[in-house]
């Protein structure tokens, strides 16, 4: 083992970090759209759709991300040939973004739903009592409070997704880990490559955690002295 190789590998691997982060950002963005939609469907128990939402959430919670990745990778092109769209040559990044987006969507939906249900009934009534309509009540009173409450879980989920991106290479994505594998092939120093990757992942997670805890403080400042940091 040659520890100094880590210094050599570090710049080579970190130059692919943006791909990893791109996957994460795309997944979170897709996840937010899906998550809010599904949460609303669940909260308002929209007939028929509520059923579908339940099955969707149960499936995403019930299967490994790796299997989901393979299902999308092999299933989506097959599905799209039905409508004569050929994605067999599409960038695997696309499949990864969709898979991780769907996965984020399911967990975000449950997080948002829990938080919305956690907002006291009195807040809704106060909003109505001053003459707000349902949309104003939802957008101005309930959602801001719910999002602040949901934030810690949301942050955990995002960090979980970041770690899950380490599996994207299995369908041939050239992210950090993908690049790591080519380095292994050329240098035959697998251990050092994985050590470097671990350091980078750990660094990114620490940064994210720091950022999230700062934003959490800001978001939840209205909880005042009651929300003393217990860490």
């Amino acid at each position: 083992m040659d520890i100094t190789l880590i210094i050599d590998f570090f710049p080579k691997l970190i130059s692919y970090l943006h791909i990893t982060l791109l996957i994460l950002v795309a997944a979170v963005a897709i996840g937010l759209i899906i998550g809010v939609t599904i949460a609303l469907i669940r909260i308002y128990k929209v007939p028929a759709f509520n059923r579908l939402a339940l099955i969707y959430i149960s499936f995403m919670r019930g299967t490994p991300i790796l299997i989901q990745l393979f299902l999308i990778y092999f299933g989506l092109p097959a599905l799209l040939t039905l409508v004569h769209i050929d994605v067999s040559r599409a960038n695997p990044l696309l499949f990864v973004a969709i898979t991780y987006g769907l996965s984020c969507g399911a967990s975000f939906a449950e997080i948002i739903r829990g938080a919305v249900n956690g907002v006291e009934r009195g807040q809704t009534e106060a909003a109505y009592s001053i003459g707000m309509n349902e949309k104003q009540m939802l957008v101005r009173i309930i959602l801001p409070q719910a999002l602040a409450m949901a934030f810690p879980n949301f942050a955990n989920s995002v960090i979980g997704s970041l770690k899950d991106t380490s599996l994207a290479f299995t369908i041939g994505v050239m992210d950090m880990v993908g690049r790591g594998n080519t380095l292994i092939a050329s240098s035959l120093h697998a251990l050092e490559v994985y050590m470097t990757l671990s350091i980078i992942y750990y660094g990114v997670v620490l940064c994210l955690e720091k950022g999230f805890s700062l934003s959490e403080k800001k978001l939840q400042r209205f909880e005042g002295s009651l929300a003393v940091d217990t860490k």
Partner: peptide
Amino acid sequence: RGTPALMHIML
């Protein structure tokens, strides 16, 4: 907690 399980297995 800050690194993917894949890394643990590989290391």
